[in-house]
Each structure stands twice: as C-alpha cells, then as structure tokens.
Nucleic acid binder design. Structure first.
Length: 397
DNA sequence: CGTCCACAGGAATGACGGGCGG
DNA sequence: CCGCCCGTCATTCCTGTGGACG
C-alpha cells in the first residue's frame, strides 16, 4: 500500500501535465487581464482622487459571474497601493457578501481590516457599527471598501447597512470612506431603496460577458505558463471557451474546465489533455457543485427534497407544495422527527429554488387554487450521492 | 362576472444559544 | 456568575391573489 501511495505522490510531484497549476485557480490574479482594458481604465480614473486625499465616488459594478469584476477591482487596487502616494493614506478592504451574508459578519470583517477586535457574535449590530466608525476615524485615512456579491447581503438582510455605510462620511472628520459594490445580479437595484441607489450609484461600471474568442485568449495566456509545453491537445482550449461562453461567458468556468481536464488527464497518466477530458471535467464540476450544496443543507431541507423526489418517482413530473408537505410529514413521522409547519417548508422550497437544486414556479389553477409547481433540476445520481451521506436520510433510501 | 381554492408570502412573536458588562 | 440583549430559526396569524368554474 505505502509503495502505491509513494508512486502516486511521485507521479503528482513530477507532473507531466502541469508546470504551475496555481495559475488556473479562480482566485489567482494575473498581471494582465486581456479584454478588460476599458474597465480597468474607467475604474482607475474614478479611484485616482484617493491618491491625493480626496474621497472617490462610490461605485457600482455590474456583470455576470466570471466577467472579471473581482479581478479588475483587485488589479486596480493593487496598482493604487503600489503608488508611493498611497502609503499612510489609503486602506483597502475586501469583503465577500456571499461568504459573510449578514450585516453583522460584514461589519466584523470591516473591523478586522482596521484592527478593531469584535467577537463572532453577541454584540448588537449597531454596537459593532459604532466601533467601526470610531476605528475608521482614528485611522485618518481614505478607506476603500469593496463589497463583492453585494446582492447576496441585501437579499438576505436588506440595505440598512448599505445605507449607513453610504452616509458614514457625515460622521467622519479625519477619514473618508468610499464603497465599491459588486453584483452579478443585473436587476439588483430593485432590492434597493432609492436613497441607497443614488448614493451608491454615483458611478456605474458594466462588465459584459466574454465572447468565446476572448475566453480563448484568456485561456491561452494562462495555459502557456500553467501547463508544460505541448500537452494541450487540439481543440481543447476552444472547447473550454465554447462551453463557458454558453454559460454567459464565464471566465472562471472556462479556467475550471481547463484545470480539471488537466487533472483528469494526469490521473489517467496521460501526457496530453484531450477533448474527452474537458467533457468529463464538465460533468465532474456540475456533480461536485450539487453534491457539495446538498451535503451542507439543513436536515429538514434534505427531507423536503427527498419528498419531492419520491413524488417525482411515483409518476408525476411536477409536484405542488401541498403534496410535498404531505409526503414530508410522513417521512418525518417515520424518522420520529418534529414536523415543521407548511409556512416554513414554503421557505425551504424557495431556498432550494435559489440554490438551483429544484425549479419552483408559482402557478394558478383557477379555482383549484394557487400553488407552486416544483420539479427537481439535478440528476438522480448526484441527488442520491449528496443525500446518502446523511445518516437520517440513508435510513429511508 | 363573482366566487373561491390552495396556497404565497409579510409581520409579529417566541425559543434558543451565545457574548457582554457589571 | 447573572441578567440582559443579540441574531437566527421556527411558529402563528394574517392578508393577498390568478384564473377555472358556475
């Protein structure tokens, strides 16, 4: 056994495919961002006043996932920080609102970057905010706050925090705060109140999706340094680009495809990355994503999903809330668990809808009521793989 | 054209686990 | 250590509603 392991490690270390795999990771920031020159310049122009101590306008950045919003922002901030003028004058803060999706956690994160200590929980949000304002004022700097995937925060916790942050400068004398909001939801402003839109949207930048040829450029540039020479087979780059272009021009997806295709080829002991590896990579990505989401869902969501699945299996392609709830209740009784109310189940169904596990559409059937038509939008295989990990669920299946 | 189904989804409230200040 | 307050999850109660049926 240990000999086999040894061989495996050696093989991975002496990769015949990769020269530097890290270059393909989604959070790697390359020196050059092809086809985003315009956005880089615009953003730099807006932020430049910070260098001589003026507050830059707040900025709203729109664009679908993988269109380079985060990369461009980090790129520009990095360039600003490098300038001599920035020293002792500018502090930049980055927070991802999908990762930290409550007002409290965002504030805690902001506090962290200006060395203000706050506990994980327990304090009132208003208290944390107060400490943050005090901390900022003490710093006497221009603070640039990047709130990535800001839509996630607003949808969950409302725009209160945003409002406060846009007004924060009225409480400050020695420091100034500038906010960059990044969102991949183009209709995001619907969730915002007018007061926030006007102050946050002083400037707006739109990132269009990458087209397939542009994705090819990006991939080729990264592949040149990430892979050993000559290992990329005919048409591999083009396929990755085409698949990602179909997914609204998502560069992250394109890079993931290429990296995982490379990993699959390597696992096979192949010396070339071929088209079939890319196809397999696509399947793997989708499966992993879904299984990961399923595994981390709360127990009752899993049971609801199972209920939908069982309804599905007994012939119907679509189910309604009422039918799901009945089945759900039976399952709970069999497992001797407390039954949640229908109101709560309705929320759980909505949550799974936004996660993309199921598809729920409100339909009206006249005097037979108004309900939701629910169907599962993931493969049976990944559903089982994700659910069977749960000890309760596996009792039933 | 009004009715009325079967829910959707908002608001208020309670239970619970956890940190804070004294 | 205690009483207090907080955020989160869940319940209860509620009003709203698209359109087939009569």
């Amino acid at each position: 056994m240990s000999k086999k392991l040894d061989e495996l490690f050696t093989r991975v270390l002496k990769s015949r495919i990769f020269k530097n795999r890290e270059l393909l990771r989604p959070d790697y920031l390359p020196d050059e961002l092809p086809h985003r020159e315009k956005q880089i310049l615009s953003l730099a122009k807006i932020l430049a006043p910070a260098l001589h101590g003026e507050r830059p306008s707040n900025i709203f950045i729109y664009g679908l996932t993988g269109t380079g919003k985060t990369a461009v922002t980090r790129h520009v901030l990095k360039a600003i920080e490098k300038r001599r003028e920035a020293r002792g004058r500018i502090i930049t803060t980055y927070a991802n609102c999908r990762h930290d999706d409550t007002n409290y956690r965002i504030l805690a994160k902001l506090c962290e970057t200006i060395n203000v200590k706050v506990p994980f929980t327990g304090l009132a949000t208003a208290e944390v905010y107060k400490r943050y304002v005090e901390g900022v004022e003490r710093k006497k700097r221009i603070i640039i706050i990047v709130l990535d995937e800001i839509d996630a925060l607003v949808k969950k916790s409302g725009d209160d925090l945003l409002y406060k942050l846009t007004r924060i400068n009225t409480q400050l004398k020695k420091s100034k705060v500038c906010i960059i909001g990044i969102t991949n939801d183009l209709k995001f402003t619907e969730y915002l109140s007018a007061r926030v839109i006007s102050s946050l949207g002083e400037e707006e930048l739109v990132f269009p999706p990458y087209r397939a040829p542009e994705l090819e450029d990006i991939l080729r540039m990264r592949a040149r340094d990430a892979f050993k020479p000559g290992v990329i087979g005919q048409g591999v780059i083009e396929l990755c680009a085409a698949l990602a272009a179909r997914e609204h021009g998502d560069a992250r997806r394109a890079l993931d495809l290429l990296r995982i295709a490379g990993e699959i080829a390597e696992r096979e002991g192949n010396v070339k990355v071929e088209i079939r590896h890319v196809k397999e990579a696509r399947r793997e990505i989708e499966r992993d994503r879904v299984v990961e989401v399923l595994k981390t869902m709360p127990l009752h969501s899993k049971i609801v999903l199972l209920a939908i699945y069982l309804q599905n299996k007994s012939g119907k392609r679509e189910t309604t809330t009422g039918e799901i709830y009945d089945t759900y209740r039976e399952l709970c009784e069999r497992l001797q668990l407390d039954v949640l109310t229908q109101r709560r189940i309705s929320d759980l169904i909505n949550e799974m809808d936004t996660l993309g596990i199921i598809h729920a559409k409100v339909i009206s059937r006249g005097r037979y009521g108004r309900t939701k038509a629910v169907k599962i939008s993931i493969s049976e295989k990944s559903l089982k793989e994700g659910l069977l990990k749960d000890e309760f669920i596996s009792k039933i299946l």
